[in-house]
């Protein structure tokens, strides 16, 4: 079953990217901060693109196991 703690979702990445672009467009942040934001933006953009590139639809079936736990089996398309 999927881990409890997950990397940021695409949605979070995109929201953060929008916020970064907005912050860079205003003049309130100092230069060090601006460069740090830019680096973060580039990194998030990269992970978002990767997520899109290597994505394949995954199909699974959820059942309740005999012990009451969750059981996830892969399904064919």
């Amino acid at each position: 079953m999927s881990a409890e703690r997950r990397p940021p979702s695409l949605e979070e990445d995109l929201n953060r990217l929008d916020a970064i672009v907005r912050a860079l467009e205003t003049e309130d942040v100092d230069l060090d901060r601006a460069l740090a934001l830019f680096e973060e933006g580039v990194e998030r953009l990269r992970t978002a693109r990767e997520r899109l590139a290597d994505a394949g639809l995954r199909l699974r079936q959820l059942r309740e196991a005999a012990d009451g736990g969750l059981k996830l089996d892969d399904l064919d398309r």
Binding site: L24, E25, E27, V29, A34, L35, G41, L45, R49
Partner: peptide, 27 residues
């Protein structure tokens, strides 16, 4: 739609680039 997102990512990338170069110039 995946294609919509590919477009959106490209736009964000462009925005990021131009914002930072503008910011550098300003600094």
């Amino acid at each position: 739609e995946r294609a919509d997102l590919v477009r959106r990512l490209a736009a964000v990338g462009a925005g990021l680039g131009s914002a930072v170069s503008r910011r550098l110039q300003l600094a």
